[in-house]
Nucleic acid binder design. Structure first.
Length: 671
DNA sequence: ACGCGCCGAATTTTT
DNA sequence: TTCGGCGCGT
């Protein structure tokens, strides 16, 4: 299919900064893909000098795939399509020396950081979980705002702030000692480097002669700064975004970055993509009218040349179970009437906890479903365990990993022993693993304990040595897992045999990924173990299992998780004040983001859209009678069928019929 | 190995 | 308030 005029304009605008305001379903991925192709084939920019940045691995994979399809693989060699974080990691790897880092660093995920903060604060203050979360997000905010601990300390006024800033300093100190980086560092470090180091800046500006950024409304301050530093004076770049789909501001995303572009680049070209190719007219109209209730920097009005479509419906259940039953009944009916496959249906909700009743209802009717989100693969304890082994293999300074696995499975190294190792490590200013290897340790531990520690050290160091030879990596890792008796241990501690099997399967999956990455294939260069582990930490695997994606299953997910997807039939459930908009957003006066969330949900639907709610909902044990979401009243009422309204209509019709009959009967009686 | 009892969650989480 | 997960004790 041909590109429409504005899409073409977006593709052909290659001089200077370009902002593409891409409404939902307006074909933005296609525009980015075509633009990359255009740059390579028509503008003679070598693929290796083009960078495209996304937020998710999935988006990056898809984009790579589509550029490959358009151009043929041979033209895309050297093309950079990656997430912000992977790009950051690439820069850090190339600039380790300039950053004063050791290679073989670990990447900490949020859980690791949290654990570190917990350990740091433990013997100082009795911080509860909420406080630690707050501290964690404060540190993240500081990093995203590019503030070093020093500056945070200086700016902190309240004693609480000062305490947080002090923990920030200690956190950074500890991270450095562990030779570890967190996700925010992957952006912050390259940004600071490019800011201060002119030759590095020139190097990377030369590397990326053209830069494209997807989902620009989700960038935070340091990401925007990184983009600015990378594009330099020439400012040849395209960013694509939609301020109406900004739903991650609570994570530090700065949708204002869209507006800032105009200030920072006065020559900015703004191109709007307003034709929607996804939804029928009624759905799109509803979305437009809803979002008009929000203030806008850039005006935009989507239009569709699709069918008018059916009216949007509102269904009310007696309670949340009934609501779920009715959604499921609706799916069954549709499937029966129109042979609609299950994967054409999506159930979207505000919070993960809402999924349970729907799972139950689907299970009752034996309907296959798939839940995205929830507990992720990498949050599973067994995966974290083995990941800790991998991390220690590539980074002996990773104390967090050491502590996790030194006595796992149980090998008689108790907290006492670990404490002693810690003391020695502290005295010698080295990591735990190095201290465990130190001869001074022998005098401080019992013979038995010392022997156990030495066995562990041997285990790791031998495996690490063998991992230096790529052909041996696979056998070493499988051998290591066997040697520590992890499978047997899983069977011991798991609540059921099935659970143990599941867990062991996860471990094998993990090891399969690593070994495949180390081996490489026709598409992917072989990687070192270190690189592979980093990729795993960034959740950037070769390919996820596709059977699950393709199975015919009803899709269950949060509204957040639905961004970027589309479904023929969408159910937005729990459309109640307090849920959507969420109570805490109402309290904080941030209903606008909730409205955008509703907007995202609505614009996922292609053919039909059904809102549901419960008249009664159990919450904290007592029963609530929620009001319908205010967003339902903001929608064009002509295009909405409220259930009771329809019921009322039918009742009225029935009454008419009745009274007609009455009249007739009376007339007959008279005669 | 199993069971009991206690504690925590209840908003979203691209990396 | 309730449910689920985890940890400890037998």
């Amino acid at each position: 299919m041909q590109l429409n005029p504005s899409q073409q304009e977006a593709v052909h605008a290659i001089r200077g900064p370009v902002l593409v305001l891409a409404g939902a379903g307006s074909g933005k991925t296609r525009v980015i893909t075509e633009k990359i192709a255009h740059l390579i084939t028509r503008c003679a920019i070598p693929a290796r000098h083009i960078g495209a940045v996304t937020f998710t691995n999935k988006a990056a994979r898809e984009m790579k795939e589509r550029v490959g399809q358009t151009l043929g693989r041979e033209y895309t060699r050297g093309l950079t399509v990656s997430t912000f974080h992977t790009l950051g990691l690439t820069i850090i790897r190339k600039e380790v020396k300039n950053l004063g880092m050791k290679s073989g660093f670990s990447l900490f995920d949020d859980q690791d950081s949290f654990a570190l903060l917990k350990a740091l604060t433990e013997d100082e203050i009795d911080a509860d979980k909420a406080m630690l979360k707050l501290l964690q997000s404060q540190i993240s905010n500081w990093k995203n705002a590019m503030l070093q601990p020093q500056q945070a300390l200086e700016q902190a006024k309240l004693p609480d702030e000062q305490m947080f800033a002090e923990f920030y300093r200690r956190y950074q100190q500890n991270m450095q000692a562990c030779n570890a980086l967190d996700f925010d560092d992957l952006i912050l470090l390259p940004t600071m480097l490019l800011k201060t180091n002119e030759s590095a800046r020139e190097r990377w500006q030369k590397k990326f002669q053209y830069l494209l950024v997807d989902e620009y409304q989700d960038t935070n301050t340091s990401q925007y700064e990184l983009v600015r530093l990378l594009v330099g004076k020439d400012a040849n770049f395209t960013v694509v975004g939609d301020d109406d789909q900004s739903i991650y501001s609570w994570r530090g995303a700065q949708p204002q970055n869209l507006a800032l572009l105009q200030r920072d680049f006065p020559q900015l070209q703004v191109i709007k993509l307003e034709q929607n190719y996804r939804s029928c007219k009624r759905i799109l109209k509803a979305a437009n009218i809803l979002i008009e209730n929000n203030p806008h920097v850039f005006d935009k009005k989507l239009f569709s040349e699709m069918d008018e479509g059916e009216p949007l419906r509102v269904i009310k259940g007696r309670n949340e179970e009934h609501e779920a039953d009715r959604v499921v009944a609706e799916i069954v009916r549709q499937r029966f009437l129109a042979r609609t496959p299950y994967h054409f249906f999506a159930i979207l909700y505000r919070g993960n906890h809402q999924s349970r009743v729907f799972e139950k209802a689907l299970l009752n009717q034996r309907i296959p479903y798939r839940m995205t989100g929830g507990q992720s693969f990498f949050a599973r304890a067994e995966v974290k365990d083995i990941m800790a082994y991998l991390r220690l293999l590539v980074n002996p300074s990773d104390d967090t990993a050491f502590i996790r696995i030194v006595n796992l499975p149980k090998r008689g190294i108790g907290p006492q022993t670990v404490e002693r190792i810690g003391e020695l490590a502290h005295e010698l200013h080295v990591g735990l693993y190095e201290a465990a290897q130190h001869h001074q340790l022998e005098t401080r531990l019992g013979t038995r304990e010392y022997a156990q520690v030495q066995e562990f050290v041997q285990l790791i160091s031998q495996a690490a040595r063998r991992c230096d030879h790529p052909p041996e990596v696979a056998s070493t890792l499988y051998g290591l897992v066997k040697e520590i008796g992890y499978e047997e241990w899983l069977y011991e501690v798991s609540p059921s045999q099935a659970a143990a099997e599941m867990r062991y399967k996860n471990i094998n999956e993990l090891l399969r990924w690593v070994t495949e990455m180390v081996k490489g294939d026709t598409e992917n260069e072989p990687l070192t173990l270190e690189q592979s582990v980093a990729k795993l930490c960034l959740r950037d695997m070769l390919s996820r299992n596709e059977e699950e994606d393709q199975a015919d299953q009803v899709q269950l997910m949060t509204l957040h998780a639905s961004k970027g997807l589309e479904f023929p039939h969408v159910f937005m459930v729990g459309m109640e004040e307090g849920l959507l908009p969420h109570q805490s957003s109402i309290d904080e006066g941030n209903v606008e983001e909730e409205r955008r969330l509703a907007y995202v949900g609505i614009t996922r639907a292609q053919q039909t859209l059904t809102f549901t709610m419960a008249r009664e909902r159990r919450q904290y044990g007592d029963v609530m009678k929620p009001e319908p979401s205010r967003f339902l009243f903001e929608l064009p009422q002509d295009d909405i069928e409220w259930e009771e309204q329809r019921a009322a209509n039918e009742e009225a019709k029935e009454q008419q019929r009745q009274s007609g009959m009455d009249l007739l009967r009376k007339a007959l009686e008279k005669n």
